[in-house]
Design a protein around this nucleic acid. Structure first.
Ligand SMILES: [Zn+2]
Ligand SMILES: [Zn+2]
Ligand SMILES: [Zn+2]
Ligand SMILES: [Zn+2]
Lengths: 164, 164
DNA sequence: GCAATTTATGCAACACTATATCATTGCAAT
DNA sequence: ATTGCAATGATATAGTGTTGCATAAATTGC
């Protein structure tokens, strides 16, 4: 690793995996071992990871892993709202939003760093609603559960200003 | 084509190509025939187009076209602010923002339809500034000249509601 | 239980997107 | 002429994602 990222302790990861498993059961779907392992890897990384890196890492956990194995797991996890795809870098990241009391999930805008794939998922009702209203006024209708914004994270800003 | 898109008359296209050529000259760069043809194709389409479709279309205009030919042209056009890349669909679209009196370009937020690749580039100082401030408050710094928002265009909304 | 049905996985091949590398051309400055 | 530079030609390869079908595992209905 070129630099460190905040990583949740593995007990936190276990808790979040258990939480995810409950959520899937409530939805009538199953968090199978493969899906759970892929989600676990994403949680461990804590930032955006590419699909083929997940394939490599999965091979250690599950020898028969091929690209479809991972892509299918990612598709499932995205449908469950547990993972987001970062279009700008073809990467995937575990959702960091927490369920609220009603089991409702609010995905804030995704601040994604193009340099290091750090992602800050900041929930902000105010901003989200303003954006939705603005989009609607333009005759469009928001599609997808999150909006991805390309922005340098604090760490990469420092590096950039030092390099400049 | 499955459905029609508003296409600027070819005189408009010529005018915009001439405008682009002037802008490049002012920047000390050159809108060469290849670059001009690629931009022309994007202007003709008026919505997002995939790189390999451009390769195919370019082969009619320029027999020796290969993927690098098109990707190099697109890279140049993006650097000049004449073209945007749509991350969500791996497509490219001609910038529809017009220079203001000072030669300054304001890229509004990009409303991009995931179904048909229609793109509405709506300049809005208010919204852009609010968003920039919000990003800054989160400790991030906006990177890139535009923000891509996934949203159904009016036409695809109709189709979607009819199908549902 | 057990068969029928659905869902998930294994596996191979393929399709699509983008870049690396090196040679070549054309033109301008020395 | 020689050099330098920007653009292009040409080939190969890397990277990303999907399809199709066969097999296996779980769920459902009896
Ligand atoms: Zn989320
Ligand atoms: Zn960063
Ligand atoms: Zn633009
Ligand atoms: Zn549309």
């Amino acid at each position: 690793m070129t630099h460190t990222h905040p990583q949740p302790a593995s007990t936190d990861i276990e808790a979040r995996l258990a939480h995810a498993e409950n959520r899937c059961r409530e939805h009538g779907s199953r968090l199978t071992p493969i899906r759970r392992q892929v989600l676990g890897l994403l949680l461990k990384h804590g930032h955006g990871v590419k699909a083929y890196q997940l394939v490599d890492e999965m091979k250690s956990l599950h020898a028969s892993t091929t690209p479809p194995t991972v892509y299918r797991a990612l598709e499932f996890l995205q449908a469950e709202g547990l993972v987001h795809r970062l279009d700008m870098s073809n990467a995937f990241v575990a959702c960091s939003a927490q369920d609220d009391a009603h089991g409702h999930v609010h995905h804030g805008l995704l601040l994604a760093c193009p340099r290091c794939n750090a992602v800050a998922e900041v929930p902000d009702e105010q901003m989200s609603h303003a954006l939705a209203a603005w989009v609607h006024q333009a005759g469009y209708r928001l599609e997808g559960e999150s909006i991805e914004i390309k922005a340098l994270c604090p760490a990469c800003q420092k590096i950039a200003s030092a390099t400049a």
